[in-house]
Design a binder for these strands. Structure first.
Lengths: 227, 227
DNA sequence: TTGGTTTCTGACCATTCGGTCAGAATGTGT
DNA sequence: ACACATTCTGACCGAATGGTCAGAAACCAA
C-alpha cells in the first residue's frame, strides 16, 4: 500500500510473511531489546544506539528492519495490546462472580509476570499521557470496561456481590496486579529479594483474590460460607 | 563545604536561606516545570530546554539556579520523599486497625491528588529501576514497612483482622492509591472525564477503604457489626 | 561464473543534548 | 556618584541524537 517507509517491507512481499530465519531472529532480538530500553527510559529517553547495542547489531541495521524509532515503538505497543486483548474474554451474567474475578486477577497477574518489560512499556506510555494510546483507551478498552461494569452491577442486583462501583473495582484489580511488574524495583528493594519466585507470585495471587473477593462480598463456591 | 557546583549556593550564604523574592519565585517555577517534564518523559527523556521553556526562563538560568540536570532531578526526588515521609507517622498495636488503615488510604490518596506530577516522577524513577532511590528503598522505607508489618501481624493475632500477609497488603494500598495519579490518562480515557473532581476522589477513597478493610476482615467501629 | 536481489553497515548529516563562560544587566550599600 | 557583589544570558563547546545513503557483503537462481 502507501507505506514505503521500511525497505524490509518492500522486500518481504507482505507484512507478516516469514522469510529468512536470520530475519526472524534479528527482528525478535531487536523487539526484545527495544522493549527493555523503552520500558526503562520511556519513548524520548530511549536511544536507538542503546537498543542496537542490546540487540548486538549496528544501529543502521535496526533502522533497516524497523524503519524509524516511532515505528518501532508503535509496533511494540501494538504487540502488547494484542497480548492484553488476548485475555479480555467475554463474560455473562450467568457466570460465577468468584470464578470470573479470580480468573481475571490470575490472568492479569500472569500477563505482568510473563511480560514485565511490556507491562512497564505500557506503564511508561500511560505515565507520559498516553500520546499513542489515547484512541485505544477511549474506544476499545472503554467499551470493554463498561460491558464488564454492567455485568458486575447485575451481579450486585442479584445479591451475588456488594453494590460497589464496578469501574473502581476494575481499576483496583488492574493497579494491584500491574504493580508487581511496574514497581518491581520497589517490591524487590523492600522485601530484600533478588527476584520474585513462582511461589511468591502464586502467594500474591491468592492474597489478592482472597482480599478483593471478600472485600466485594463475593463468596467462593467451594469455601466457607460464612466467617 | 566541598560543594562549589552551583554558584547560587555560594551567593546565598547557606542553603535554604531566603534571599530575594524573585529567586524564590524562579526556583519554585523551575522546580514545578521540571517536575512536570521529568514526570512525563523520565530522567533521560527530559530536556533542560523543555524545562526552561515551561518555566519561562532561558536554559542558562535554569543551570545557574540548579547547577546540573542531575542535581535538579535529585532535588525533586528529595522533595517528593519529604512529602512522602511526612505521612509515615508511627502507629501502635493499641490503635484501632480500621482507623489506621482508613487514615493510611486517605492520606496516601491525598498525596497522589495534591502532587500528581511528583507521584508520576516517583513512578518513573521506580519504573526505570530506581537508580537514584535504591538506597532509600532498601533502607528507610524498608524499615518502615517492616515495622508496620509487625503491627499488622499482632492485630491478626488478637483477632482484629485476618492473618493476611502485611507486606502484600501495604503494596495493595500503595498500588491502588498511586494508580489514580500515575495512570490518570487511562482513568480519564476510560471514564470519559476531563479530570477527577474532589467528589470523585472522595468516592474512590470510600470505595477503597470499604473493600480493603472488609477484605482483611476489619470491622469499622461505628458501622454495622455484621453483614 | 554470472547477474540480480536482498541484506547489511560505515560514513555522514542536521539537530539537539547538557554544560561552560565571558560579560552584560541589575541591584545595593556607602 | 562610586565600587562591588549578585543575577542573568547569549554564544559556544563536544558529544549524542534520529535518520539517510552509497555501496559493500551475502545470497541465489540460471
Amino acid at each position: 500500500m502507501t507505506e514505503g517507509s521500511a525497505p524490509a517491507e518492500r522486500g518481504a512481499r507482505e507484512q507478516g510473511e516469514a522469510n529468512g530465519v536470520t530475519r526472524q531472529r534479528n527482528e525478535r532480538e531487536i523487539l526484545a531489546a527495544a522493549e527493555r530500553v523503552f520500558a526503562r527510559h520511556g519513548y524520548r529517553g530511549a536511544s536507538l544506539q542503546a537498543i542496537a547495542e542490546q540487540a548486538g547489531l549496528p544501529k543502521s541495521n535496526v533502522l533497516y528492519y524497523m524503519g524509524s524509532k516511532r515505528g518501532l515503538y508503535v509496533r511494540l505497543l501494538e504487540r502488547m495490546m494484542e497480548r492484553w486483548n488476548a485475555l479480555l474474554d467475554d463474560i455473562s451474567v450467568e457466570d460465577d462472580p468468584a470464578e470470573v474475578l479470580e480468573a481475571f486477577i490470575r490472568s492479569k497477574m500472569q500477563l505482568s509476570r510473563r511480560h514485565p518489560e511490556g507491562s512497564r512499556l505500557f506503564a511508561a506510555e500511560i505515565l507520559g499521557g498516553a500520546p499513542f494510546l489515547q484512541e485505544y483507551l477511549r474506544g476499545e478498552l472503554r467499551d470493554w470496561v463498561q460491558a464488564r461494569a454492567r455485568i458486575f452491577e447485575q451481579w450486585a442486583e442479584r445479591g451475588l456481590m456488594d453494590p460497589v462501583d464496578p469501574v473502581w473495582l476494575i481499576f483496583l484489580i488492574w493497579s494491584a496486579t500491574q504493580h508487581y511488574a511496574d514497581f518491581e524495583a520497589q517490591v524487590l528493594g523492600i522485601t530484600g529479594r533478588d527476584a520474585l519466585s513462582d511461589a511468591d507470585v502464586e502467594e500474591i495471587t491468592t492474597f489478592l483474590t482472597r482480599v478483593i473477593l471478600k472485600g466485594c462480598g463475593i463468596r467462593s463456591r467451594d469455601a466457607e460460607p460464612a466467617a
